[in-house]
C-alpha cells in the first residue's frame, strides 16, 4: 500500500507502525513518530495499524536554538 513518509510517497507492506519502521530501516533508531498528525508513543507502535494513504512522520534529534 502507498503511504506518505516524511512527505514522500512510499510503498510499504507493514500493517503496523512498528512493521513499517522496521521495513524502512528505523526499527532500532532513536525516532519519534506521528501518524496522521497524532503522536504515537513507542509502546503503541506494535499495535497501531497503518492503512493506505496514512501520513507517517518519523522525527529525529536535530540542531535547535
Amino acid at each position: 500500500m502507498k503511504i506518505e513518509v516524511n512527505g514522500a510517497v512510499r510503498d510499504v507492506q507493514g500493517a503496523t507502525v512498528a512493521g513499517v519502521l522496521a521495513e524502512l530501516g528505523w526499527g532500532e533508531a532513536r525516532v519519534a513518530i506521528a501518524l496522521n498528525g497524532a503522536f504515537v508513543p513507542k509502546a503503541a507502535r506494535a499495535t497501531m495499524a497503518v492503512t493506505e494513504g496514512d501520513r507517517l512522520e518519523v522525527l529525529a534529534p536535530m540542531q535547535g536554538g
Partner: peptide, 19 residues
C-alpha cells in the same frame, strides 16, 4: 543545550551522540 525534532534524514542519530 537546546535541541529540536525534525524529519529523520540520516543525521539525527549521530547528532544525538554529540549532544
Amino acid at each position: 543545550a537546546t535541541v529540536s525534532l525534525r524529519r529523520e534524514a540520516g543525521k539525527g542519530q549521530a547528532f544525538w551522540q554529540i549532544i
